[in-house]
Nucleic acid binder design. Structure first.
Lengths: 202, 202
DNA sequence: TGAAGCTCTGAACCATGGTTCACTTCTTTC
DNA sequence: GAAAGAAGTGAACCATGGTTCAGAGCTTCA
């Protein structure tokens, strides 16, 4: 044996893989899944198309990884806010705000995660993550009901309405560009969400 | 001139075109846009693939026509209910019920219209129709606010939440198969919708 | 430095599925 | 019935874009 991967070499490969995922994420956020060809992604990462296949067995596998990383971050952040400090209604309010704010800050990515046309493998992953978003919202709604802050209700449906509303706001260039309009939009959205869960209006 | 289309021939062609659209709609409802190849659709209609191009210049044009017909029917029905008799809150309640009920009755088609992966031309059409659904809901919410039945709110966002909630319920096999569960689901969904718009709970 | 084995390249390859077209079949008119 | 012309056929064509692979260039180790 005249060659063995040295630790440095291993971490270099690992870094290349991470870089590829990062660049692919940017491309997807920019132009959507359908336009993110292997060549486009490889170009963005500064490698040849063939080299992609050293890190992933197929384009679909790369796409799924990109999706999981990005969606995983959102689930994590949302989970921390919804499961954090404060009473259930406060947490719900902050959760909606954080979810929507992050989405508006990176619309391209949010659109890719929530709604953009994608290959079946990504579609399946998306269903799974939407279920997770819903489960997180549903849990805090249930806590609110248990604490007597919210009226009895089907928490799953309320949760669906919340993700649905946020999704709709993003799909379409509904939110204006300037800061004031964005603030207003977030306030209106949060108000609708609280009403939807049955929280007394402020 | 030894040949001229006779009226009977013209209506036969028209009928063939309608039949093609109908069969294509069924195929799409059954297997989704991505699996609805020209061959599959032509087979379903009992004609050759090439014959499709006598009625439509491209597959995309056929797909758009299929979408418009089906989505147009839904918009029309929803519009009639929301713009019909009764006070705004009653109409909103019935509108949500009708929209969701029709969707649950033909899930495949509803999924195709609201969420299934589709080619860009259909995606653009979908955005347009989602805007129409929202506009219809928003109008009745505005009327409710004007009538003092609903609190002041951003009607567009409430409308987005309504379509979003219904969409979420459909995307996922959330609704159970039996009749009782469906009734309960519709009741819960309507309740969430009314809360979302700020109507006093029953 | 040389041998061995790996990474990287990018042009060729190939699968998929929409589209075309030479040909057949049917309809109309004389 | 025959000519003219449209509708209908389906196999061949072609564009797109994911995947492969033979060779070039590196890295490791003796």
């Amino acid at each position: 044996m005249a060659y063995r991967k040295t630790p440095a070499e291993i971490s270099r490969l690992e870094a290349a893989r991470e870089r590829l995922i990062g660049c692919a994420t940017e491309v997807v956020a920019d132009v959507g899944w359908s336009q993110a060809s292997v060549n486009a992604v490889a170009d963005a990462a500064g490698i040849a198309a063939g080299s992609v296949y050293q890190h992933f067995p197929s384009k679909a596998a790369l796409a799924v990884e990109v999706f999981r990383r990005a969606a995983g971050r959102e689930v994590e952040v949302l989970g921390e806010v919804l499961g954090g400090a404060g009473d259930p209604v406060e947490r719900l309010s902050r959760g909606v705000d954080v979810f929507a704010r992050r989405a508006l800050e990176n619309r391209g990515l949010a659109y890719a995660l929530l709604a953009a046309p994608a290959e079946p493998a990504v579609g399946a992953e998306r269903l799974d993550f939407r279920r997770r978003y819903r489960a997180l919202f549903a849990e805090v709604v249930r806590e609110g009901v248990a604490a007597g802050q919210l009226p009895p209700q089907n928490a799953e449906i309320t949760a669906a309405a919340l993700t649905g509303a946020i999704g709709e706001v993003l799909v379409d260039p509904l939110a204006a560009a300037d800061e004031n309009a964005t603030q207003q939009l977030l306030a209106d959205l949060t108000a609708a969400a609280l009403r939807c869960a049955g929280a007394p209006t402020a």
